[in-house]
Design a binder for these strands. Structure first.
Length: 576
RNA sequence: GGUCCCGUAGCUCAGUUGGAUAGAGCAACAGCCUUCUAAGCUGUGGGUCAGGCGUUCGAAUCGCCUCGGGAUCACCA
């Protein structure tokens, strides 16, 4: 396709004597043709009407470029029809495609970044799925990707859980209570806030505990390690259920002192300044922002100090071409400042920092608020989706005669597929709505729709292989491109075109950092296949060449759906 | 108040490096299973692309203004 565009650009160049790169677009369904060239930009050079120009260009391209079979002109739109052999070549090329060639670039993706005082909720789920998916997409685009997690394991909020547990916990543990560790710790965080109303002194006690932690008081430190350990065990279960993973995990307890030397550097360069109380600031009012604190009066660091430090550390540890932070849009300001400060400190790589800012997940009644108990817990959500999938499968009779293990696995894939697709099909930057009552669909533009399409194809391929092995026999006897079917019908051609788009979709998704691009493509492909499946017999087709071609298309659709959904972390069942 | 994001069908969302008559799903209604999995397919209805002005052959897409919604501007992280 790229090759074709270059040829067209060259042909137009010789025709009008200037380089004019006109992009090819897909021809709209209601017109004849495969690709369309818009000739309006050529009018100045041609000095003719749009129609005449398009005709002239059409004739010229038709003469010079063998891949073009015919053309038609509608106003300034030149619609080109390409030869079937062109499309068959394109198809053969995509059949060998898994991922793009190495770019030699390394990208670090930071995502998840939880607090250890409460369990993961729906917002974290969007974050985790986005981060993991973007990493997969970048990898498929040919990059080396390092997935990292920066766990916020220290600070006053953790001390609140610890204090409440110490005062009211009676030695309760995950083992004794049967609770998941992160939920147990979360329970005491809530307990703290409840008790605070009647006993305001708790606030000061928590502060005291934080001071002890920073002084490495043995008792406090041991409690901190124990309770964090519980939380990590709980998180691991959730991460595993979601299918996300990390190459490296950073802990703020180990990084929170970083960045102080940068403050010295900034002071020396005169970019930062110190106030009377000893605190250090940067004045960003000239950039339309505010003054920003970088170091407290008592010399302790703040969030920004630490983030400056970790960024510098990461770029010095290895050669990164890009560092992506998957963090909610509530922190847009923070990252704007972070980037600005790094550029003022003259780090050449400050432009390589990118905040992948995603929108909040809202409930029908508005934002999730833990205090009002309106959070949607990640584990509950996952379990609920899997249960729903199982119930639905049973109602539809899909699990009749299936082993319990297989039934569980299908339910798991479908339930998670529905959840992941639901959260990833929406443009990351947009705020999205989740209605627990209506729950997540299993029909229409959903994960299960795509999974179902895949299961159907697998069923055909199983039968196709066992019926007579016609395809493989013909392939053996006559070679891969022997006796191709003579004519491709409209639906087959539509599938071929879509299939050949996949590599470009990966490129686009990587450029936009948007799993939604991949999700929408997968839906489009599945939908197109379902139409084809409905109208065209595959195994029942009597013409052997046609049957083989349709089997080949089906196999490639299944393969492409697997690749695309794999980028979203969605597993496709072979039966459902 | 400053900065940033968003506004497309009743609902949830596609479509924006400017292209032809703005698309899906859900919901509603009407059809299609003795034949490759009906979690599917087909059809009907549903729009001032928030509003206005501008840029141009052409604007949902770019610019300015207005209205509406959200985020943020902590010695929290």
């Amino acid at each position: 396709m790229k090759n074709l565009e270059q040829k067209i650009t060259a042909a137009i160049g010789t025709l009008y004597g200037e380089k004019c790169e006109l992009p090819l677009t897909k021809t709209r369904r209601e017109f004849a043709g495969d690709v369309t060239l818009v000739v309006f930009p050529l009018l100045k050079a041609s000095r003719k009407s749009p129609e005449a120009t398009a005709m002239k260009v059409g004739e010229c391209l038709m003469r010079d470029i063998p891949e073009i079979k015919e053309f038609n002109v509608v106003k300034g739109f030149l619609n080109l029809t390409l030869t079937e052999s062109f499309w068959m070549n394109q198809l053969a090329m995509t059949e060998g495609f898994n991922r793009h060639d190495d770019t030699g670039r390394t990208v670090m993706v930071e995502y998840s970044s939880p607090n250890t005082n409460k369990p993961l909720h729906l917002g974290h789920v969007r974050n985790n799925l986005l981060g993991y998916s973007v990493a997969q997409i970048l990898e498929a685009a040919g990059n080396r990707v390092v997935k990292v997690n920066l766990v916020n394991d220290r600070g006053i909020h953790i001390c609140k859980s610890m204090l409440a547990w110490q005062l009211y916990g009676n030695g309760e543990t995950p083992a004794s209570s049967g609770m998941k560790g992160d939920h147990l710790v979360g329970k005491y965080y809530v307990e703290f806030n409840n008790r605070l109303a009647e006993d305001p002194s708790l606030q000061e006690k928590a502060q005291e505990m934080l001071r002890k932690w920073e002084a490495r008081d043995p008792e406090v430190y041991a409690l901190w390690e124990t309770m964090n350990g519980w939380v990590y065990e709980g998180f691991d279960v959730t991460y595993k259920a979601l299918g996300v993973s990390f190459d490296k995990i950073y802990y703020e307890s180990q990084t929170y002192l970083l960045g102080k030397s940068l403050v010295e550097e900034g002071l020396a360069k005169g970019i930062f300044y110190r106030k009377e109380d000893g605190s250090v600031w940067i004045d960003l009012t000239a950039d339309g922002l505010d003054e920003k604190l970088l170091l407290r009066g008592d010399g302790t660091s703040v969030y920004m100090t630490q983030d400056l430090g970790t960024a510098v550390q990461r770029f010095s540890e290895e050669k990164l071409d890009q560092l992506i932070y998957v963090v909610g849009n509530e922190q847009n300001y923070h990252f704007q400042v972070l980037k600005l400060i790094l550029s003022k400190l003259c780090y050449a790589w400050s432009d390589a920092i990118h905040h992948l800012s995603y929108g909040m997940v809202e409930l029908p009644e508005g934002k999730m608020k833990s205090r009002e108990g309106t959070v949607v817990d990640a584990d509950d959500l996952i379990d609920g989706m899997i249960d729903t999938a199982r119930r639905m499968s049973e109602e539809l009779g899909k699990l009749d005669g299936v082993s319990p293990e297989e039934a569980a696995e299908v339910s798991r894939r479908v339930g998670l597929g529905a959840l992941k697709y639901f959260l990833l099909k929406v443009d990351p930057k947009k705020t999205m709505l989740f209605d627990p009552k209506e729950s997540i669909d299993f029909n229409g533009n959903t994960g299960p729709f795509i999974q179902y399409t895949h299961a159907r194809i697998c069923s055909i391929l199983r039968k196709g292989a066992s019926v007579d092995g016609a395809e493989s026999k013909r392939m053996r006897d006559e070679g891969p491109d022997a006796a191709p079917c003579e004519t491709i019908n409209a639906q087959e051609l539509e599938l071929v075109k879509l299939l050949t788009e996949y590599p470009r979709i990966v490129t686009e998704a990587a450029a936009e950092l948007s799993p939604a691009v991949v999700a929408n493509y997968g839906y489009e492909l599945a939908k197109t296949f379902n139409g084809f499946y409905h109208d065209c017999p595959i195994l029942r087709e009597e013409d052997a060449a046609k049957r083989d071609f349709r089997l080949r298309l089906s196999r490639q659709v299944a393969r492409t759906l697997c690749l695309a959904m794999g980028l979203l972390g969605i597993e496709l069942p072979e039966k459902m």
